[in-house]
Design a binder for these strands. Structure first.
Lengths: 112, 112
DNA sequence: TTGTTATATATCGTGGTTCAAGGTATAATT
DNA sequence: AATTATACCTTGAACCACGATATATAACAA
C-alpha cells in the first residue's frame, strides 16, 4: 500500500533553511526575514512553513536548538549538526539535478 | 474558509508540458517519454501527472486536442493555443523568478 | 492610555500537487 | 502463448506548504 516518494520539486524551504544555517546560527523569525530579503521578496516563507521545518529538522537530528533571551524576548537559535550538513549536501545536489533537468527542457531546441 | 495559494514551487510539470508543445504538436505518452529522455531520467512524470495536466490545460483553453489513429492505436495530439502561449510565458517568468531566488540564497555569502 | 506595528514563538486545518497503482486495449516481440 | 511496448485514462492517498490563528513582549504613535 503505497508509500509514495515526495514530489520532485519539494524540500526547497528545508534547503533554504539549512543553507542559511550553514553560515551561522539563526532563529526562526530571523530566517523568515532573511529569506524574504535575500530573494527580494520573491520567496516568502511564513511561520507555518518555517517553524514546522525547524522542528522537523531538529527531530531528525539535523539541527541543534539553543534558547536565548534578548531584550526580554525569547529566541530559539538553531545551528547545523554534522548530520544536518550531510542533509544539506544531499538537498543541494537534488536541487542542482532537478533545476538542471528543468533547464534542459526549457532550452531544448526541438530535437527530434 | 481559506482557499490557499498553490505552493511556490509547483506548476513545473505544467511548464514542461507547455514548453515542449510550443515546439510542436505531441501526444501524452510521447511527452512523458521525451521529458525522461531530455532530463536524462531525472524528471519522470508518470501518466497520473501527464494526463490530468493535459486535460486541465485543455479545459482551460490553453491546449487544443486532435485525435489521430496511427498503426491502429489512437493518439491524442495537443497543440498550444494563443492562450496557452501566454500561460507558458507566465510560467516561464515564474520559474525564472523563483529559481533565481533560490540561487540567491544558495550563493548568499553570509551578508549581515 | 490606547492602539498599532514589529518582534518572536507555535499549532492547526485544509487545500492542492504529485504520486503509485490499477484499469483497458492494440501491436510487436520473444 | 506470454511478455513488452505503445497509448489512453482514473482514483485514492500522501505530503508539503499555505493562511489563519493564538500568545506575549517591546516600541512607537495618537
Amino acid at each position: 500500500m503505497g508509500q509514495s516518494n515526495p514530489p520532485f520539486m519539494t524540500g526547497v524551504p528545508e534547503l533554504l533553511v539549512l543553507r542559511l544555517l550553514a553560515e551561522r546560527e539563526m532563529y526562526g523569525y530571523e530566517l523568515a526575514r532573511r529569506i524574504r530579503l535575500v530573494t527580494d521578496d520573491v520567496i516568502r516563507l511564513g511561520e507555518g512553513v518555517i517553524y514546522p521545518a525547524l522542528h522537523g529538522l531538529e527531530a531528525a537530528g539535523a539541527l541543534k536548538a539553543r534558547r536565548k533571551t534578548v531584550n526580554g524576548r525569547t529566541r530559539v537559535y538553531y545551528r547545523l549538526t554534522s548530520k544536518g550538513r550531510r542533509r544539506l549536501e544531499r538537498l543541494l545536489a537534488d536541487w542542482e539535478r532537478v533545476s538542471t533537468g528543468v533547464e534542459a527542457v526549457l532550452e531544448e531546441p526541438a530535437g527530434a
